[in-house]
């Protein structure tokens, strides 16, 4: 009575498959270390490294954690988790990309002293603030505490 219950509740182990996955994981570990020695371009290296890690994690989850053949309810939980994890990853990344974009006008702004030189009387910082107040807001904020620190010393 209970044995049939157990068979339904727990996954039948497949020892041969465990060893095959073990071999695959070792090969992929070697691969990820070797790829890092190739000194690929940064973004390509990161993409390949994370792809290999994802494949390894999927193998562990599918075969060792028996997700392969698991109930749909658990897939549902994991799907939700992956979704919110993606949100958690992507929101700050989009923010960082935005800041990166805002940094470029700042770089143009730093050339502005030339224009300031033409204006003679104005200080370098003021025209920059006039030209792009929105863009300079953030970097200016980050600079202030550094200045404050210096004066405190």
């Amino acid at each position: 009575m209970t044995s049939s219950n157990k068979a339904a509740a727990h996954h039948a182990p497949d020892v041969k498959m465990y060893f095959i996955i073990f071999g695959a994981l070792l090969v992929l570990t070697a691969a990820t270390v070797l790829v890092s020695y190739l000194e690929l371009p940064k973004m390509l290296g990161i993409t390949i490294g994370l792809m290999i890690a994802t494949v390894k994690a999927s193998l562990v989850a599918a075969f060792f954690m028996h997700l392969k053949g698991e109930r749909t309810l658990i897939y549902g939980f994991l799907g939700l988790t992956v979704f919110f994890m993606a949100v958690l990853f992507l929101l700050p990344i989009t923010d960082a990309v935005e800041t990166e974009k805002n940094r470029q006008p700042m770089a143009v702004g730093s050339v502005l002293p030339q224009a300031a030189g033409e204006a003679h009387h104005e200080e370098a910082a003021t025209p920059a603030a006039h030209e792009a107040p929105a863009e300079t807001k953030k970097p200016a904020k980050s600079k202030k505490p550094a200045g404050a620190k210096k004066s405190a010393h």
Binding site: T32, V33, V35, S36, G45, L50, I52, A53
Partner: peptide
């Protein structure tokens, strides 16, 4: 994930 993220990338 930690291994490549910290050591290799």
């Amino acid at each position: 994930f930690l291994f490549p993220a910290l050591y290799l990338l």
